[in-house]
Design a protein around this nucleic acid. Sequence first.
DNA 1: TAGATTGTTAATCGATTAACAATC
DNA 2: TAGATTGTTAATCGATTAACAATC
Lengths: 216, 216
Amino acid sequence: MEEKEISKAVIKRLPRYYRYLGDLLEDGVERISSNELSDRMQVTASQIRQDLNNFGGFGQQGYGYNVKYLYNEIGKILGLDKTYNMIIVGAGNLGQALANYVKFEKRGFWIKGIFDVNPRLQGVTVRGIAIRMTDDLPQFVRDNEIKIAALTLPKENAEQMANLLIENGVKAIWNFAHIDLRLPEDVIVENVHLSESLMQLSYNINRYEREHEIKE
Amino acid sequence: MEEKEISKAVIKRLPRYYRYLGDLLEDGVERISSNELSDRMQVTASQIRQDLNNFGGFGQQGYGYNVKYLYNEIGKILGLDKTYNMIIVGAGNLGQALANYVKFEKRGFWIKGIFDVNPRLQGVTVRGIAIRMTDDLPQFVRDNEIKIAALTLPKENAEQMANLLIENGVKAIWNFAHIDLRLPEDVIVENVHLSESLMQLSYNINRYEREHEIKE
DNA sequence: TAGATTGTTAATCGATTAACAATC
DNA sequence: TAGATTGTTAATCGATTAACAATC
């Protein structure tokens, strides 16, 4: 059976739907129509229905969507009903910030280890997790069935490190290094480029000022 | 004069062009054609030329693009030739991680202050910057002409805080809180939703596994 | 000049929105 | 049953790619 390809644009919107539905659930809302949700999320009702129908019919004519059901279904689509073992490679500020981020565990992402090359950090613990040296990585990844690695290290070491991790069983890289990793086809890569995000913000400040000046 | 609207997709690609051109510059490359750059960046040469021509003709027929010139021009488009005063609101792990990120200053983003509500953090310094209490915020923002604020605080306080900052002169919000801020039209908002990024990664792990199972 | 490569127009592709029949 | 709202097809819009004349 051929599964129809879901576009990246749709996938990017799913976590946002999930967040809104979670909030609705907390507020005790039982059902919601695509129109109501459209109002809250500032997207068209048409888009909501199209997006959801990529994965099946979760609603009911004349009724709308059951919030709890839809929340759970989107959770499943996103794989949040599963658990994943995860490590953080690079125990700098960003790495430690991620390690301290408790909510990941609520979603099934278990941080099993934090690694660094700096011997000074050896034994330092972050939220009860001891920072280990990268020499121990291959063994650790295999022993703990680590599937996800967050890379919070300098770009110079990122690709080599990614390959080492993959060789030992890692399936997905959450990449914070300022580089586009060239990795085997079947490896999942998700990039977070903070400085590029800040540059977009900067562009928009200037765009606004440019347009404003022109009108004067 | 009407400026033609540049699409978000184009703006999102600009920082990536900038990064590649910076790397080329470091490698001492003087000129590059859209075709060569296309190979390196894994985008079509046509897209590169289209994107750049939104802002003017930076190349030369028969020659290509001068790397240094194009790098500087894109820098200007992104507003990286200017400087901005910036604060971080929320001195948790993520806030401190951002404060420690030295490279922002290289791009003209000067971190002038870090704020928190927690009195325990008062006086603690991060990279030489003392953490201040949020009571002092309005005065500080005005006195230091703060234009950008990074919000690394719980979603419950984010929108109220954003409004307070805007009242005192902040033009742009770099939002790390898990909420969509509803703010005045002319305020620039750039979101970084880490948990949503991780969910996309999670989706892709599962997608791969689903497709694999189906083929068995 | 001949070759290379841009800038730009036209063609294609994909994503979003509109519309409405199906149905709860 | 009548009203509401989905699921889905068709229409529109926008973004990407292809093609090529302009020109360095």
